[in-house]
């Protein structure tokens, strides 16, 4: 790399990491200031672990993300298998276009439009408060689904198609053929998709904001509430913890991906040798 490129890259990374460094450093600040560092302390972490509302919202976020991930992974994987087998061109284009909508549409429109449906249906039922855990869950499953589908589809395309039919010729039911033959092949895509769904659900604020009720608060919504007032470094401590947890998840999904690539490479080598 040329010197000028090195300087440029460094400047860009300074810009990208400045706020993160600020967060990490000031979460260990003894004083309440977010701009002058006094002494190192774990004070804000202690305070965080004594804040019952925040811990409750962490629990809520994890429950929601887990359920949303399970549902979107199962439904998304099944959908990918179905989409992969579609023969009619117009039908495939239609499904692909619809699946792309939540990824392209601005979050605020996805959130508002779902909220309108929930409120409308709630009113038909005569419910006074139509937004709750379930509406939020539906919203989360909806925006996670495309990511799962687009992670699993390429894995299905890499797979040899005859294998499933061979299994069925040998007497497997379609269901059994899926678990015995297809699943092991597409598993890395399913896992990456699930991890993406989980992190997206953990992190989502905008769509949650419009589909949540009063009785179920997730962490991003709680953070939004906290930043309306002046913020203490307690929130920075929280951000630091979230940061390391998501980093761990990211590394895990990278690891799964690398292992899968290595497996594919080995397999190709073996095939070449046989030929």
């Amino acid at each position: 790399m040329k010197i000028s490129s090195k300087i440029y890259t460094t400047l860009i990374f300074v810009f990208l990491f400045a706020p993160i460094v600020v967060l990490l450093v000031f979460s260990f600040n003894e004083a309440k200031s977010l701009s002058v560092f006094s002494t190192f302390s774990f004070k804000w972490y202690e305070e965080l672990f004594n804040d019952r509302n925040t811990l409750e919202s962490v629990k809520n976020t994890l429950i929601l993300a887990t359920v949303a991930t399970v549902i979107s992974t199962v439904m998304g994987t099944a959908a990918a298998v179905g989409i992969h087998r579609i023969r009619r061109h117009w039908y495939r284009t239609l499904i692909n276009t619809v699946t792309n909508i939540p990824m392209i549409n601005p979050d605020i429109i996805t959130g508002i439009s779902m909220m309108l449906v929930f409120v409308f249906v709630g009113r038909l039922w005569g419910a006074s408060n139509s937004l709750n855990f379930w509406t939020m869950l539906i919203a989360h499953v909806t925006f996670c689904l495309p990511y799962v589908i687009f992670q699993v589809l390429p894995k299905l395309q890499q797979m040899e198609r005859d294998m499933v039919e061979a299994a069925m010729d040998l007497g497997c039911t379609p269901f059994r053929a899926f678990f015995k033959v297809t699943m092991p092949e597409i598993l890395p895509g399913v896992i990456t998709g699930a991890i993406m769904a989980f992190t997206l659900s953990l992190d989502d604020f905008v769509i949650s904001y419009f589909t949540t009720g009063n009785d179920f608060q997730t962490l991003p919504i709680r953070i939004y509430g906290m930043t309306k007032k002046t913020v203490t470094p307690k929130m920075y401590a929280l951000a630091t913890i979230i940061f390391f947890v998501t980093m761990a998840l990211l590394l895990l999904s990278n690891f799964v991906d690398n292992e899968d690539n290595r497996r594919l490479r080995d397999k190709r080598k073996q095939l070449k040798k046989k030929k």
Binding site: P19, D203, I223, M235, A239, T246, L250
Partner: peptide, 16 residues
Amino acid sequence: IPMWMNFLIRTYAWMT
């Protein structure tokens, strides 16, 4: 990596 930091907190950090 910065994309995995909550968007609200990132923005708040810029404010400080």
